[in-house]
Design a binder for these strands. Structure first.
Length: 449
RNA sequence: GUGGUUGUAGCUCAGUUGGUUAGAGCAUCAGAUUGUGGUUCUGAGGGUCGGGGGUUCGAGACCCCUCAUCCACCCCA
């Protein structure tokens, strides 16, 4: 006998969990649709050539490659090294994220798409990472992106989507943190070390984790002078209200045109006057985000301070994403929801509504052929009214059927035994209260389950 | 890729300095109960102690290898 198991870093989602996950997916989807985003699905596999090189060296390593069919033995023999071997025996790989397939789609369909194109996509992606807490080899991403528009109105709309989704999920106290890559570029410019921009952002991004001292040390290791580090430290300690932060930034970055542009952009996004937020976005100058293709606004959503959880969503503007596939000059901006983490937060704060956890409302007990036949009429009547109802398929002992209802979490049991059959009524028992009442047969469809 | 943790029943875990037939709770099944679940009582089934090798009169325990697991780092969602 083989001991059943699933691959490392993958998960089964049982009925209870799928329901709760769907509640999150549905809430997000509903908001995406309300804001005019259109659904897109792309294949689980992409051509290896579409994906390689798009996520850096690390990404290529973490990509799941799909073995070619047929005789790979012969092809493998001709390979001289690992890289050639992979090329010889694999031409497809599992989707690594949703953004690159989206870019590929836009380029392939550029003649048919009405730009700006607003799409959302909720599908699993795969990474051959070493699994650990909150980190899996198969996980879902929920992205919404706009391509083909430089307007900052898109940034505002995407922030509103975050605001709406978390409001609809009943998750109060989330923090929408925003920054702008141009501000970080401006900082590097002011220091005169533009070539170290990536190193600077990577270090700054770790401030929460390793503290000011840690950042200092890392910056120094990456080749920055004490004067540079002092400037960066001054930058990192910028505080106060959004307006005060913007003023301090303007002061610090006055010699950088790029930096000032970033400040202008942030100002617009925050004070567009277009609308009001439930969760007002907060400027966080230390926000950097790892991906270095971002070029404008960047955003990250932090879970309420009461739960120990990092980011539950993030995104930003990137220029020229489709340039990789030969379509230049198309700018995009997008956001992403971390569904697994949102799930954990809702679970911890007990925020899943009852309706997200219930399936069948009524179970009709099966007490023999004639009784079951009577039950069937009620079943169809209830289903027509949108009430989930089912009958226990076997005429088992009553107590077994009751136990089944209990275990399934079905709130009501309907009993049609000999006496009910002759009296033309149904006994309906509420399993939560233990109370039971007889309801006339023709009134069952109107019963308040 | 680096460092560490833990592998014993379906699940969560006990198991003393190495010593007879490896235990508990939960879960499962049956009965108490031929029309009433969630509470209670009685009983039953269920384990090659992750796998392989070694030390020993004797290994679940000690040693080596290996596999799996979870956690941290790197990186990321």
């Amino acid at each position: 006998m083989i001991k059943p198991s699933i691959p490392k870093g993958t998960r089964d989602f049982g009925p209870v969990i799928v329901r709760k996950r769907n509640y999150i997916f549905n809430t997000i989807r509903q908001v995406f649709e309300l804001y005019g985003f259109q659904p897109l699905e792309t294949p689980a596999m992409e051509n290896l050539s579409t994906l390689t090189g798009k996520y850096g060296e690390e990404g290529d390593k973490l990509m799941f490659k799909v073995l070619d069919n047929g005789d790979i033995f012969e092809a493998a023999g001709k390979a001289a090294n690992n890289k050639e071997l992979v090329a010889a025996i694999s031409e497809k790989a599992l989707r690594y994220d949703l953004t690159i397939p989206f870019a590929r789609y836009v380029v392939m369909n550029q003649n048919d798409l009405a730009l700006p194109f607003k799409r959302y996509q909720m599908q699993p992606v795969w990474r051959a990472d070493k699994p650990q807490k909150g980190r899996y080899r198969e996980f879902y991403q929920c992205d919404a992106d706009v391509v083909g528009s430089n307007s900052l109105v898109n940034e505002v709309e995407l922030l509103l989507i975050y605001d709406a989704v978390f409001t609809n999920l009943g998750l109060a106290g989330v923090e929408l943190r925003v920054n702008n890559r141009k501000i970080l570029s401006g900082l590097a410019e002011v220091i005169g070390k533009q070539e170290l921009l990536t190193d600077i952002t990577i270090s700054i991004d770790k401030l929460d984790k390793i503290g000011a001292e840690g950042v200092r040390k890392e910056l120094s290791d990456r080749g920055l002078s004490d004067t540079d580090i002092n400037t960066i430290e001054k930058f990192l300690t910028i505080g106060g209200t959004n307006e005060e932060k913007l003023n301090q930034l303007a002061d610090l970055l006055q010699s950088s045109a790029t930096g000032l542009k970033g400040i202008e952009e942030l100002k617009f996004v925050l004070n567009s006057g277009l609308t009001a937020f439930n969760n007002e976005p907060i400027i966080d100058v230390t926000l950097a985000r790892g991906l270095n293709y971002y070029t404008g606004m960047i955003v990250e959503v932090k879970a309420p301070a009461t739960v120990k959880m990092g980011s539950i969503g993030g995104g930003g503007r990137y220029d020229d994403l489709t340039g990789l596939f030969g379509l230049k000059g198309i700018s995009g901006v997008g956001i992403s929801f971390g569904v697994d983490r949102i799930y954990d937060v809702l679970e911890e704060l007990n925020l899943f509504p009852e309706t997200a956890q219930q399936s069948t409302k009524v179970l009709f007990l099966n007490l023999g052929e004639a009784n079951a036949a009577a039950a069937f009429k009620h079943l169809q009547g209830l289903r027509a009214k949108g009430i989930a109802a089912e009958i226990y398929p076997d005429a088992s002992k009553m107590d077994k059927q009751m136990k089944y209802a209990n275990k399934r979490g079905i709130p009501f049991v309907a009993i049609i035994g000999e006496s009910e059959l002759s009296e033309n009524n149904v006994s309906i028992k509420n399993l939560a209260t233990g109370q039971q009442e007889k309801v006339a047969a023709d009134a069952v469809a109107h019963y308040n389950f």
